[in-house]
């Protein structure tokens, strides 16, 4: 591998951008395909499939064996609200290899005792996302769980603007209807607002906090595997 190719691959990873290194294992020839260039690539179909699964692997093309080194940014989950559901959600998300951050300005909720070993940020979402928490991007999932528009709305707006692959918000259909009105007034289009999954979580009849956490995580995995990310 040429050092320039390796440097470019590492740079894409550092910038949290997806890329695939295509190696002809017969003669060692290589090229780096960045995500925006996949559509125009002769191997577009195979590259897209591997990017979606997130798995490296061999493909055959034109009688040659090509190895695809797939590099996809690790998925982050940002949870708004240090609530009961989040307490169940954080360890379950960690088991799925999601890097979890919990944001809640209410210091009575956001305590290390309630969230041992969790990246906990006791700030308003705007302040958290402007400083200690890395910027949201399309390899992030955001779940707004506080029920409080003052806390949830700014985070949802940031997630929509950043193109997070998953944006979910807790609350009844009635609560969500009011949320849609507020976000519309804030200038978001119907299509943008339509990306918010509300009521949050797959419909598995979840009743307890842990069951709701499970339904949210299942929805996040489904969104990722459907091509959004992961």
């Amino acid at each position: 591998m040429r050092i320039e190719t390796l440097r470019a691959l590492n740079a894409e990873r550092a910038a949290r951008r997806a890329a695939i290194l295509v190696t002809d294992v017969g003669d060692g020839e290589q090229r780096l395909v960045r995500e925006p260039d996949i559509a125009a690539d002769p191997l577009a179909e195979a590259l897209r499939a591997h990017l979606t699964s997130g798995r490296s692997g061999l493909v055959e093309a034109g009688g040659r064996q090509l190895f695809l080194t797939v590099q996809v940014p690790p998925v982050r989950l940002v949870v708004i609200g240090a609530v009961h559901i989040s307490q169940a959600l954080a360890p379950m998300a960690a088991a799925l290899d999601l890097a979890v951050t919990v944001i809640d300005p209410r210091t009575a909720f956001a305590t290390p005792e309630r969230f041992p070993d969790v990246d906990l940020v006791p700030l308003w979402p705007d302040a958290a996302l402007a400083g200690p928490v890395p910027p949201l991007d399309r390899y992030c999932a955001l779940a707004a769980l506080t029920h409080d528009p003052k806390i949830d709305d700014p985070a949802l707006a940031a997630a929509l603007r950043a193109g997070c692959f998953y944006v979910g918000a807790l609350g009844s259909r009635k609560t969500h209807a009011r949320r849609v009105e507020r976000l519309t007034a804030a200038g978001f289009s119907e299509a943008e607002i339509g990306r918010i999954r509300a009521p949050i979580g797959l419909d598995i009849g979840a009743a307890t906090p842990a069951e709701i956490a499970l339904s949210v995580l299942a929805e996040i995995v489904a969104a990722g595997r459907a091509g959004g990310s992961a």
């Binding site: 591998m1 050092i3 390796l6 440097r7 691959l9 590492n10 990873r13 190696t23 294992v25 997130g54 490296s56 061999l58 190895f67 080194t69 797939v70 590099q71 996809v72 690790p74």
Partner: peptide, 30 residues
């Protein structure tokens, strides 16, 4: 990709930049 494997690629770049001779092995099939 496993987190530690991305560290390997970063190490490969650093080693090479430091002037060391470097080879990279990749599991391509199991």
């Amino acid at each position: 990709m496993h987190a530690t494997d991305t560290d390997i690629l970063a190490a490969a770049e650093t080693w090479r930049r430091d002037g060391r001779d470097v080879a990279l092995a990749t599991v391509i099939e199991t």
